Simulated assay, not measured.
Amino acid sequence: MKKLGIIALTLLIQNVFAQTNRFVYQVSMKPDASNKNDIKTENAYLDISPEKSMFYSENRLKRDSIMQKAFQGGGGRGSINREQMEGLRSNINYSIEKDKANQKTFFKDRIGRDIYSYEEDRPLNWKILSETTKIGEYKVQKAETDFGGRKWTAWFSTDLPYQDGPYKFGGLPGLIIKVEDSEGDYSFDLMKNYKIAEFPAMNQFGNTIKVKRTDFVKQQEKFKSDPMSFMSQQGGGGFAQTRIMGGGGNRGGGGNQNPADMRKRMEERMKEEAKNNSNPIELK
C-alpha cells in the first residue's frame, strides 16, 4: 500500500508539472503604414510547457474549432458560417514555436497555398536596465533590444519564472509582461493566465516547406508583387479558385464564374491585403 501511495504521489507531481500554462496577451498593431490611426487589437496565446512554447492568435484557434466541427459533422467547407469566419479574421497569421532544450525559435506563416517555416537566425541581445515599476500585480524590470529594424522596450517579471515572452521575444530572467516598439506601432500586454491540459492541435492546410529566413523574405516579396503568378508556380490554380469561391463566390446563386473575373477579384483582394499590411512587425 505504501508503495502504491508513493507511485500515486509521483504521478500526481508529474501531472502538475506536465501542465501547460497559457498566457493571454492583448496585441495592438498599426499594420497600415498610410493610416496609423487604424489600430487593430486582438488576443494571442503564449502556451508554455517545460519543453516548448507556442505563440499564436486566439482567433486562429476559434477558426480551427469551427472548421473541425464542420468536417466532423460531415458538412465540409459548405457548412461553415462565412460571416462567423470573417469575424474571426486575424492580423496574426503566423505561429511561433520555441524549443526550450535546444534554444531555438521557429516561425511559421502561410505564403499562397503552403506553410513556410524557418528557424530564427538572429539572437536577441538584451540590455537589462535597473528601472523597475509595477504592472498589475507584477513587479517588473525594464530591458531594451533592437530587433527586426525596430527598437523594443520590454518589462519582465521574475515572479513568473519563464524566460519567455510573446512573439519571438524571450531570454530574460523572467516572463515578459509588456513589450512595445519605440514608434508605438506594436505592443503586447499580458492580460491573464491559466492552466490548460495540453497544447491544442492546429489545423494545417497545404504543405510545410522549410527554408532559411532570407529565403522566406524573398518568397514573401515575390508573392506580394505577383500573387497569381506565385500561386500558379505552386501548382495552385485550382486552389486559387477554391479560395475565391470560399470567400463568397457563390453569392447571387451563380456557381459557374468567369475565371478572368475570379482572377481579377483575387488580385484586388491581394493588393488590399498588401496595403493593409504595409507596416509589418519586422521592417528588416
Rank of each mutant, 00 (worst) to 15 (best):
V217S: 01
M228W: 13
K271A: 12
G247Y: 11
D47N: 12
R269C: 05
N81K: 06
E180N: 12
R263D: 09
Y56T: 04
I39M: 01
N277I: 04
E267G: 08
P161F: 03
D38K: 14
A33L: 10
I135F: 14
A33K: 15
P161C: 07
N203C: 02
A143K: 01
S65E: 15
K195D: 13
Q72I: 11
M54K: 07
L175I: 05
A201L: 11
S28P: 01
D64C: 08
G249S: 02
R150Q: 01
I66H: 05
D159S: 12
G237F: 10
Q84E: 13
D185E: 06
T153F: 01
V217L: 07
G235T: 06
K40A: 06
D261C: 03
D47H: 04
S28D: 15
M270F: 14
K275V: 12
S28I: 09
Q72C: 06
G254T: 15
Q68Y: 01
L88F: 00
Y118P: 05
K222V: 04
R82T: 15
L61P: 02
A274K: 09
L9Y: 03
F156A: 01
E97T: 14
M228A: 10
I6D: 10
K218W: 01
R265F: 00
E83M: 14
S95L: 02
A154I: 05
D146E: 11
A44V: 10
S182F: 00
P259H: 02
I96H: 00
S157W: 04
K139I: 09
P123H: 09
M228T: 13
S157Q: 05
K69D: 11
G136D: 10
G254D: 12
M231D: 06
S53D: 07
P161D: 09
R150A: 04
K178W: 03
P200C: 05
T214W: 00
K2E: 13
Q141R: 15
E144D: 06
F17S: 12
P161G: 00
P166Y: 03
M67V: 09
A33S: 14
N250D: 08
K134P: 09
E272Q: 12
F216E: 06
K168G: 11
I111R: 03
L124G: 09
N15L: 15
G246N: 14
A154V: 06
D121S: 15
E86F: 14
F71P: 01
K168D: 04
F106T: 07
G87Q: 14
M245E: 11
D164A: 14
G75A: 08
Q72N: 15
N21D: 15
D164T: 13
M1V: 13
D121M: 05
G148N: 05
M85K: 11
W155E: 00
S117K: 12
T133N: 12
K212Q: 13
N277H: 14
Y167M: 07
I48D: 08
Y116P: 04
K192A: 13
G254V: 13
K142I: 00
L160C: 02
W152H: 09
L175E: 03
